[in-house]
Simulated assay, not measured.
Amino acid sequence: MSEEQPLLVRREGPVVRAAMNRPHRRNAMSAAMMAAMDGLLDELEADRAAARVLVLEGAGGHFCAGLDLGEVAETPGDEQAKLAAQVARNAATGARFARIAALPQVVVARVQGGAFAGGLGFVCAADVALCDATARFSAPEVRRGLVAAQILPWVVRRTGRAAAQRMVLQANVLDAAAAARIGLVHEALPDAAALDAAVAALVADLLRGAPGAVAETKALLAALGPVAPEGYAAAGADAFARCAVGEAKEGIAAFQEKRPPAWEVG
């Protein structure tokens, strides 16, 4: 069952493939899935010799629908406990994106289907992102009463501030071609076969680089400037938590009940 193995990891020589594996939930990020992801990152941070490329993908034709809103809605405890849990969850999400970007390996996002919210964060934290024509991208948080707190710096880094600003405020869905136009992905391929071929060609090229030089190059890219100013991660986690215990109650309920939220006009 996918819930028993929410992250499928296989090694193909120097290439590690990690597939988010909750297709019945469009690979939404559960606590168990993220614990498995953090364990993989621990391994990769310590494995600079054997592992050289990480391909991040999703099972069942989906990439990742973002945070599992069912888990957000079911956070136990009183308001203060819920607030603390939301702060911790969002801070961990931001730290996870930073760890992915800082890996000594080259990270490739292979995207099919939806890459929404936190899923979009994974795409933008990767070094290279490729998709096929089924791919859809969105930062829908404001429509759920939440904020795109920890994905925002990564989307800005990938697309530039103007495009990111429109994405997180309008919260609409971009198709593969639109995502490629704004630089959200590096290339959009016509179908799954073409995507697989492009990923294989990319990985082959990446493996031609010396692993030490690749890691040093990534470190130099990071040294060009932080993805967000000091204090942003904590402020983002706090903002997410306030929304999660406030407007998101109505937003998540409306999403689950497939109805417009109370604040929607028109």
Rank of each mutant, 00 (worst) to 15 (best):
G58M: 03
A59Y: 00
G60N: 04
G60H: 05
G60Q: 03
H62G: 08
C64D: 12
A65P: 08
G66T: 02
G66F: 15
L67F: 15
D68E: 00
L69F: 09
L69I: 08
L69K: 04
G70V: 03
G70F: 01
G70C: 11
V72K: 03
A73K: 15
A73D: 14
A73I: 10
E74I: 01
E74N: 13
E74L: 08
T75V: 02
T75D: 02
P76G: 14
G77T: 06
G77L: 07
G77E: 03
G77W: 10
Q80P: 06
A81F: 10
A81V: 09
L83P: 04
L83R: 13
A84Y: 04
A84P: 04
A84E: 10
A85L: 08
A85C: 01
Q86N: 06
V87K: 00
V87I: 12
A88Q: 13
N90G: 10
N90L: 05
A91Y: 06
A91F: 02
A92E: 09
A92K: 11
T93L: 09
G94C: 08
A95G: 11
A95E: 14
A98N: 15
A98K: 14
A98Q: 14
R99H: 00
R99Y: 08
I100H: 00
A101E: 02
A102M: 00
A102L: 02
L103P: 05
L103E: 02
P104N: 12
Q105F: 10
Q105A: 02
Q105W: 06
Q105P: 05
V106R: 10
V106P: 09
V106Y: 09
V107H: 13
V108D: 03
A109Q: 08
A109V: 03
R110I: 01
R110F: 04
V111Y: 05
Q112A: 11
Q112F: 01
Q112G: 07
G114T: 11
G114Q: 15
